[in-house]
Design a protein around this nucleic acid. Structure first.
Lengths: 225, 225
DNA sequence: CAGGATCCACTATTGGATCCCG
DNA sequence: CGGGATCCAATAGTGGATCCTG
């Protein structure tokens, strides 16, 4: 690493991309050392580490809010674990506020605000490589194409329809061609409120939107072929 | 079954289709009874039974030769096991003559002669239904569309290239988007001759061409949606 | 708890092996 | 054996459960 860390958020897309390119080819261990943070050898004990190191290094300023990491640039930062050329996992995009979802158009939704422009940072995800030695790849600054946007919006609207009808029990990982619904909580016991048919409510587990690996694989492929 | 069995091969496509439509809705047990053949309750001991009963009932005349079942009409008969709307298995198309393959253009190949026109007979494949009680569906007389043909030919030619180069060890089930290569023998000990690089030969297991379920699923879907 | 994500048990699919008949 | 195919162990993929940090 030959530059100083971010002293504040980048002011332009180019400035952000420049910083991101400096990370390419370096390792999680190197970035952690700069931040004086210890790196477990196993991902299991540090699931979000690479993403959090990048947030610091690149100057993300959203904190734990439901908006894109680089607030002024409206760009979301996502790491993408890659093994043998393909995404190893689905990508968490945002939590779902079940009580607000049915009243929120896709355009105004937190999930679309995050999806509309993403800075993808590929990270080596070969299980045989210890976590500190895994390399970052070259950044991909991506926005959905019109057809990608259509797929995402269709998925969103099918979910919104179910939530509006109070059919929360049908809200599971089978939904969505690209944008999937999955549990999102520290453990299975967490409960939150959701609509229930005619203005009532019910309690259910928190859920989030995820991008399926087939979708992110297409992004990777388009960027590097 | 309200008609007599075939006394000879059908003379026209329409005659063949008429006979095939008479089978739709009837069961394997009914067809077997007409032929005075006993039906095991399990498919395991009668893997090819439905196909062989149909050959007799419909008047196929190719016997065990490497050409379409209805020789005059140049139509191949294939059963298609269907469960919950989808093909349950891949479809065997033809054996591969490794010693001849590299010298045979797709157009002149046994596999293309079988693929160019197929009478598909869907057969119920729910494991919970005893074999004799499984129903036949409505026949589908199919020929590949131009794009389907392109996919099939591309797959064939990749295989031919490998065989020509003597790279028989690479000839396995991973090949082919639609047309797959798999072992085809009574057991693993069978050997046959194949080319080996510069005019020599080597011994290997017999292989056949199969259609992947994704490909036959598209045929089913196009016919019945 | 919300945001950063991956873990991993289970299911679905694949593809090598096999079964019956003439 | 070649033609009629399916069986089933192993692998790939899905989706519910979980882990760390501020």
């Amino acid at each position: 690493m030959h530059v100083q860390p971010a002293s504040g958020p980048p002011l332009t897309e180019d400035a952000l991309l420049d910083r991101a390119h400096l990370v390419a080819g370096h390792t999680i261990g190197e970035l952690a050392e700069r931040a004086a943070i210890a790196v477990p050898r196993e991902m299991r004990r540090a699931k979000g580490l690479a993403g959090q190191l990048l947030e610091r290094y690149l100057g993300a300023d959203a904190g734990s809010r439901a908006e894109p990491d680089f607030t002024a640039l409206r760009i979301e930062l996502k790491t993408l674990p890659v093994h043998e050329g393909k995404p190893k996992e689905s990508t968490f995009v945002s939590s779902i506020e079940l009580d607000a979802l049915a009243d929120t158009d896709f355009e105004d939704s937190p999930v679309w605000h995050k999806l509309r422009r993403i800075l993808w940072m590929p990270v080596e995800a070969d299980p045989s490589v210890p976590l500190p030695l895994r390399h970052f790849g070259s950044p991909i600054l991506w926005s959905p194409s019109p057809s990608e946007r259509r797929v995402l919006q269709d998925d969103y609207e099918r979910v919104a329809t179910l939530v509006l009808a109070g059919r929360i029990d049908e809200l599971d990982g089978h939904l969505g061609d690209a944008l999937q619904v999955r549990p999102k909580a520290a453990h299975g016991g967490v409960r939150e409120r959701a609509p229930e048919g005619l203005g009532g409510y019910q309690w259910t587990g928190p859920r989030g939107f995820y991008l399926r690996p087939t979708f992110t694989a297409a992004i990777l492929h388009a960027a590097f072929r």
